[in-house]
């Protein structure tokens, strides 16, 4: 691990903070115009509300000369029809032009990542320029700062929705279809995201992060991520627990015999910021807790609990997985 790789934030949850509101705190060119639009719309709404309140106040409480002026069809034509037509037309022009600007097709220079929604986690596949899959990861998406990434959004089961509010609007993941969302981060950092289409069960606990690196750091990260797992001898016992507990039936660790695809790829799970798709911070303790009984933490998730593992085995396999950085 080199010194220039980004350090995880102090608490894993800092990237999930709600203040300032992520929608109003954009960090890239696909979110900034949405922030401007939001403020513009809020201003419009405040203005209209003020007009309505003023009119109502006059209608109720003003002297009769004023009330007589409002008490006819002219008010309905001007304030009820004329004024809204003007405001709505202006807004519509703004909205439609912004829509078409933000839905440009992917460009050849875009980085390509495929994200597949699963119940209730995110399968992330890094593609080369021609769309071939190079390696898989889960629940974290690493991107270089200042470059557009075209996320190819799919689903392997039900409808999910991919939403990282500081970087872009949301886009659904629909079985049988592929939707492409272009995002770009303009500063290094960790940007939190959440599933935004009810997918049953633990939908509330299906989160992810986008990690943006300075370009050189990204190259270093990518190189390391492409490499298979490096297992040190002191974790041989943990690796053995992993193998004999059948974990490889669902999980893959490149460079070992574990090659299951039903669950998240664990090749570099030790370097992830969260576990369980944004549910827990990632350390040996939470790793052990998750393995022992993930059902208590995230009910209904597809990984069974492992009460059969004793404390020593649990610690060994947790340390082993944490070492896969």
């Amino acid at each position: 691990m080199t010194a220039s790789a980004p350090r995880p934030p102090q608490g894993w949850h800092e990237s999930f903070k709600g203040w300032p509101p992520p929608v109003l705190d954009p960090a890239g060119p696909y979110a900034a115009p949405l922030n401007t639009l939001t403020w513009g719309l809020l201003a419009m709404a405040a203005l209209v509300m003020a007009v309505v309140l003023a009119a109502l106040a006059v209608a109720l409480f003003a002297p009769s000369a004023w009330r007589r002026r409002l008490g006819g069809e002219k008010l309905v034509w001007v304030a009820g029809l004329g004024f809204p037509v003007v405001v709505l037309t202006l807004l519509l022009v703004w909205g439609l032009s912004l829509t078409s600007r933000l839905t440009e097709s992917p460009q050849p220079g875009d980085l390509r990542v495929r994200v597949t929604g699963e119940m209730w986690w995110w399968r992330v596949a890094y593609l080369d320029a021609s769309g071939r899959e190079q390696f898989q990861d889960a629940n974290e998406i690493h991107v270089p700062v200042g470059r557009t990434v075209a996320l190819e959004l799919e689903s392997s089961d039900v409808i999910h929705s991919f939403w990282v509010p500081r970087l872009a609007g949301k886009l659904d993941m629909i079985p049988g279809r592929r939707n492409v969302l272009r995002i770009q981060a303009d500063a290094p950092g960790v940007y939190s995201g959440q599933c935004a289409e009810y997918c049953g069960g633990a939908h509330a606990l299906m989160a992810f992060v986008v990690v943006a690196h300075a370009p050189q750091d990204y190259a270093l990260w990518r190189a390391r991520a492409e490499r298979p797992a490096a297992i040190s001898p002191q974790h041989a016992a943990g690796a053995a627990v992993f193998e004999r507990s059948g974990c490889g039936a669902c999980h893959a660790i490149r460079g070992t015999s574990a090659n299951g695809v039903a669950g998240p790829d664990l090749t570099h799970v030790g370097s992830r910021r969260t576990l369980g798709a944004g549910v827990l911070p990632n350390n040996a303790g939470t790793m052990g807790g998750w393995i022992a009984d993930s059902q208590a933490i995230k009910p209904g998730n597809r990984m069974p609990a492992f009460p059969v593992l004793n404390g020593q085995d649990l610690r060994a396999v947790s340390d082993y997985l944490e070492s896969l950085k």
């Binding site: 719309l41 709404a45 949301k170």
Partner: peptide, 18 residues
């Protein structure tokens, strides 16, 4: 008024399903 806001597609991309 919040409905008019949501009718604006780019805003709805943030607000939808929230």
């Amino acid at each position: 008024l919040t409905g008019v806001m949501a009718a604006m597609v780019p805003f709805d991309w943030q607000a939808h399903d929230t």
